[in-house]
């Protein structure tokens, strides 16, 4: 190892700082440029971090569960009695529903319908949260080996949470819908019946989403539910997003400003699901520059 005198070190330090700052700046510029693509550094970091994040999550969940089990032990006796009674009641109900299910199956086979869910899902666990206090990304315990791909939607029983932004073989990084630069197509009410279609974006606030481009002439009420419209080419239509909490009315020419509270509990999630949804292939002209349509029309 090279031994340097203090004088040499102090002479070298400003130059080293400039080189490192420039390196970081180049990295930032590259990252900003390739924001919509998968970044190699993130994928590698995810793969390496998995070796420590998974064991820590396992141990911490085990410890939490242990203390939870101790606290719930007190009420276990009364709960046990109540549950026994419920089991008896449910046995009768199950018998009845089995009969109905058989009947349903028979009728379905007669109509040659296949009972299958619209999208397949993969249950996943959050194994890490964003290491910086400024952002809210999370890491799940499923990766490309489990069939997870870039941009796949993440949901829980409350509704849409976000999408996959980086995939390593064993883990994947997810971006929440509330992030400043996230955007998706939304519709207030049912897709087929509502005209209130707009763009839902994160507005930098953790608790609220903002919906824009809804014409001022359309009436929107506080408390209405908002769903994905599927027009963004990432999320499928019909996923629950949240509830309208504030409407700033527009006019015939100015669109309304609508604020939505996400229905999924974004900051207390442990269990989520990856929706194995791949959007339909976009036409070639949509993949190129925005004015490609106009250019194509110009051609003879």
């Amino acid at each position: 190892m090279v031994e340097r005198s203090q004088k040499e070190v102090w002479r070298l330090t400003p130059w080293l700082m400039i080189v490192l700052l420039l390196g970081n700046f180049v990295l930032m510029a590259y990252d900003a440029k390739t924001a919509s693509q998968e970044r190699v550094i993130r994928v590698w970091a995810l793969a390496i971090a998995n070796f420590v994040q998974s064991p820590v999550t396992t141990v911490s969940s085990a410890v939490t569960d242990y203390f939870k089990s101790i606290s719930t032990l007190r009420s276990a006796q009364t709960e046990n009695d109540e549950l026994k009674q419920q089991v008896e009641e449910l046995k009768v109900q199950v018998q009845r529903s089995e009969e109905l299910s058989d009947e349903n199956e028979r009728l379905r086979s007669l109509l040659s319908l296949r009972s299958e869910s619209k999208y397949k899902i993969l249950p996943a666990q959050i194994i890490a949260r964003d290491p910086s206090a400024w952002f809210d990304h999370a890491v799940i315990n499923l990766g490309s080996l489990n069939g997870v791909k870039l941009n796949m939607p993440i949901v829980n029983n409350g509704g849409l949470i976000g999408r996959v932004v980086a995939v390593s073989p064993l883990t994947a990084q997810i971006n929440l819908v509330t992030k400043d630069k996230s955007g998706l197509g939304g519709v207030i009410g049912e897709l087929a019946t509502s005209n209130a279609i707009g763009v839902v974006t994160g507005n930098g606030k953790r608790e609220l989403l903002e919906m824009g481009y809804v014409p001022g002439s359309i009436e929107v009420q506080v408390g209405e539910m908002v769903y994905t419209s599927g027009q963004d080419g990432i999320y499928p239509p019909g996923l629950k997003l949240g509830e309208v909490v504030e409407v700033r009315p527009g006019s015939a020419t100015v669109p309304q400003q609508i604020f939505i509270r996400p229905s999924a509990r974004l900051f207390a999630m442990e269990e989520v699901a990856v929706l194995l949804y791949e959007p339909p292939e976009r036409p070639e002209y949509e993949k190129t520059v925005p004015n490609a349509v106009a250019e194509e029309k110009k051609k003879p």
Partner: peptide
């Protein structure tokens, strides 16, 4: 950079600020 890689922020921003602070 190690922190940025798993964060939602811009890659290199933390590296930049920490290098400056170290100096």
């Amino acid at each position: 950079i190690a922190v940025d890689a798993l964060s939602g922020g811009i890659l290199g921003a933390n590296g930049f600020s920490k290098t400056l602070v170290a100096y």
